[in-house]
């Protein structure tokens, strides 16, 4: 069990069983908690590398639990949520969750999210300057963007948005996060700005801007830089 230690917090036994099997096969050590109290105890005593957290728990509100986990530890948290809970997702991300997966989910999607969250953690410890993802390469030190090895000219705002997406590659970034990081603003109305710049970025980066493969929209939540097959730092 050397891939890491994952805490699964869900009151549904079948889901826990499924995750135990799947993650176990990927050589993760799986800790299980059926309620908030056990979850907090596990975070405190076992120090998991990642938490999969279902927001609907029998004893407490999932968002409350998330706040408590954050107070204890910076461990990456991926929220498992229902599809109709956009507001809950955004709130969870704002409260410090790293990503979310919508139920029902496919195993591959879940594994991709877990990998992204774990890698982001490693990368924070010592980020490498050049990010490669498919045709795209971004040199964060020289602030240079290459597409198919040809230099691409981006406006300063476009670059800053791309930089945020690259720094959190594979993870969802909320509108609010992007607005705060790039404009220093949190006004809801400015989401329109963001949409304009995202459109321009897609026009420059995507093979087919109408069907973006790289910068994908998470409806009601934000944007995500999708990791294509040959990703490296």
């Amino acid at each position: 069990m050397d891939a890491g230690r994952i805490l699964v917090v869900d009151d549904e036994v079948p889901i826990r069983r499924l995750l135990r099997t799947t993650l176990g096969a990927h050589r993760f050590e799986v800790l299980e908690a059926g309620n908030a109290a056990h979850a907090l105890q596990a975070v405190r005593e076992r120090g998991p590398d990642l938490v999969l957290l279902d927001l609907g728990l029998p004893d407490r509100d999932g968002l409350d639990l998330l706040r408590d986990i954050r107070a204890l530890s910076p461990v990456p948290v991926i929220v498992l949520s229902s599809r109709d809970g956009e507001a809950g997702k955004v709130q969870a991300l704002d409260e410090g969750a790293d990503d979310y997966v919508t139920k029902p989910f496919g195993a591959e999607e879940l594994m991709a999210r877990i990998r992204a969250a774990l890698r982001h953690r490693l990368q924070q410890q010592g980020a490498r300057p050049v990010y490669r993802n498919g045709r795209l390469a971004v040199d964060l030190v020289r602030r240079q963007v290459l597409l198919d090895d040809a230099e691409l000219h981006l406006s300063p705002k476009e670059y800053e948005i791309l930089q945020q997406l690259v720094l959190h590659a594979g993870k969802v970034l909320t509108h609010r996060h992007l607005l705060r990081a790039v404009w220093g603003s949190e006004l809801e109305a400015d989401v329109q700005y963001l949409r304009v710049y995202i459109r321009q970025l897609r026009a420059k980066l995507e093979a087919d801007p109408e069907r973006p493969a790289l910068i994908v929209t998470e409806p009601g939540v934000g944007y995500r830089l999708k990791e294509l097959q040959q990703t490296s730092w």
């Binding site: 549904e12 079948p14 096969a25 229902s82 599809r83 109709d84 139920k103 029902p104 989910f105 195993a107």
Partner: peptide
């Protein structure tokens, strides 16, 4: 939605897991 989705999540998770990583 909870009652329909919870079993669905387990079913879909199990099947996709078998399909993607069956060999493991």
């Amino acid at each position: 939605s909870h009652d329909l989705r919870t079993p669905l999540a387990s079913i879909m998770g199990s099947i996709s897991s078998l399909r993607s990583y069956g060999a493991m």
